[in-house]
Each structure stands twice: as C-alpha cells, then as structure tokens.
Amino acid sequence: MATSPTAKVSGNGTSGAQRWKEMSKPEVGDWRVKGGLAQMLKGGVIMDVVTPDQAKVAEDAGAVAVMALERVPSDIRRDGGVARMSDPDLISGIIDTVSIPVMAKARIGHFVEAQILEALGVDYCDESEVLTPADNEYHIDKWQYKMPYVCGARNIGEALRRIGEGAAMIRTKGEAGTGDIVHAVTHARQILADIRTIQNAPTEELMSLARDYQAPYELVVEVARTGKLPVVNFAAGGIATPADAALLMQIGVEGVFVGSGIFKSDNPAKMADAIVRATTHFNDPDMLAEISRGLGDAMPGIEANKIPEEQQLQTRGW
C-alpha cells in the first residue's frame, strides 16, 4: 500500500488540491456535523462555569463541555432582574482557557445575541429559558447558523418544534437553579412516554398525533420510524448529585447538564469528578455507592413544586 490517494490523483494530471475541491463539497455547519458534535458529548457531563478558573476545574474533572455564563441559574433566580447573554470578554476568556467545546446562552428569540455568540466562535448555543426571553412569540430560526443549537423541552411537541427550527440537540428544561430534580425527571419521562406513544401508533394516526403535539408531521413520522428523537437528548435543570445524574441516565437520557449543582456545592472539584464518574457508570449501584461517599454538602436547594407557576423558568418559551 505504497501509493497515497494524492499520488494516484496526480498521476492523471490533476493536482490533489484540485481533485479534492471537485469531489468534495465541504458542507461546513451542515446538519450531520452539527448533530454530530452532540453525539460526541453523549455519556458526558456539561457544566455551567462563570470564570476561566471554573472552566479549568470542569475540564480537569472530565466535563465534555462547559457552559459559559455570568451567573449560575440559582444566582439568576435569587437576584431577579433581566438575565442576558454574557459579556464576550468572559466567553472569550473561557474559550481561550479550555480545549473542550464551549457553549453559551442566548435569550429565547434574541437572534442578535446568537449572531454575537457565533462570531465569538462558541461551539454550541443554548437558546435558554434561564435567561429572560427577548421574544414572547418566536424562537430563533436556528437553520441560519453554522453554530449548532441546544434547546430545552418539556414534552415531545416542544422538542420537535425546536428541532423543526434547527436545534441539533435537546435537553429537558427541568427547573433550573433549584437543585431539585423533580421537573427534569418529569420532562424526561414525558418525552420518552410521548415517543412510545408515537412509536406504537398505526401510521394513519400520526397526523392526528402531530396535531395534538403541535409538532411537525415529518418529524413525528421520523420518531415513529426510529423510536427516538432525531437529535441527542440530555437532561438539565436541578441535577445536584451523582445519584441525580445516574437517575436521569437510567430513565433514558444520553448525558447531563449540571448548572448550579457543581460550583454551589461544598467541594466543586470533588462533586464535578463524582458526577462525571456517575454518568459513565450510571447502571452500577456498587460504583455509585463508592462515588457518592464523602462529597460534602450538595448545593442548597429550593423545593421546585412550591415555586408558583409565574416564577418558574420552564414555562418560558412554548
């Protein structure tokens, strides 16, 4: 096997570079490339960080990506006021510090914040209900970007609407900043139950299901065919311990986001490390018991079921 492909090509009079251009249409930012990055994150933990130092702690602990933001959700919840995209200086500082992918949040419908994040070289944009929505009616047209998007969802309809708009990854909304897992569990179970309903329906019922879920028909048909979302599905919103992460993994998500749960705990480096281990060995109770020992206090929580609906973050977006 001495000849390289270029040598073969050069043999018939065309330069390697020319031939490469002819036979390739490198489609930067196309669907498979966008969704593909999310595939690479599977089985991993994505951690919220507010400084480059925290980003380094997250990377050293084995995070597959970091979410760069100015305040973690529990502080946003406590402080109130309008929560916006982070300062580009902060995001660039984190991008320069770590080699893992960097995500950042734009407000729902704020496509200019998204344009700025793309210009900064952010690897994934979270169009997030944790920030104050910029548009009460419309989400961002996510097809317009090379940068892939992750969006929150509480049920299959919401997930497929976001995918219809171009989201390449879905996460549960949960109730961010509470340290209470109950809504993430509810949303993950709801999405999986909806998928089973679609999968078990005879084909003539799919259009009615699409109507009921307010979801694009073509995507409902695809779910019926494959038995899963067309993109990767993570859990987010209230994960605070290794057991929380493993619970969601056993329920059937493909990875987890941890927001306030790490840097609001007693020992962030230890908690980060433990949640990474638990997400890999989510199905092994002996390992989970070992992993859960001596971590110190998890983040202080708020019981999510006692938060009045108008103060919930998950009801933002549709």
Partner: peptide, 8 residues
Amino acid sequence: RQVDSFEA
C-alpha cells in the same frame, strides 16, 4: 472550532 467542522 465547531463552526469549522465539515464533511468531505
């Protein structure tokens, strides 16, 4: 970065 990922 990710925005430069491609197929060929």
